[in-house]
Amino acid sequence: MRHVIFRVEKERYGLPLSAVREVVVPPERYTRVPRAPAAITGVMNLRGRVVTVVELRQLLHLPEGPTPLCRVVLLDRGRRDLGLLVTDVDGIEAVERVSAAPGKVTPAVRGVARLGGLGVTVLDPEGLDAAVVALFTAPK
């Protein structure tokens, strides 16, 4: 299956192409979402739609890094688009044979695969959606 391959810092991730609506450049400024969890960067206006943007690094509990976040990967979730703020997008690649990820597994991660000799973490669109909802519903 074809996947959109993108990076958070040096780490490579993939999402099924069918689950991605588009990739956009982040807006100059976001509208802050009051009382939202820290991982929520804000909302942006994408051609009349209000899209919630979440920092993938924080969603996956990855350490902070120095590289600027240059792209928003838009998950196609019907009427409620979800934007994932990532370091950069590499392109579209065919990813075969996804195997279980080692160590602690979160629902957001479907598994790992090899691509051009390097590892890529394949994410699960519904899992990501659920992870975002969990951020909001988790007791403070």
């Binding site: 209000v50 409620r80 909802v133």
Partner: peptide, 27 residues
Amino acid sequence: LKPLSRPLDLLPGLSGVTILGSGRPVF
């Protein structure tokens, strides 16, 4: 007025969102 879509509808205290003439989303 646009209704809030998931996950924003989970936040208490927001009743909707709109986009101003400037293109800026406002809660």
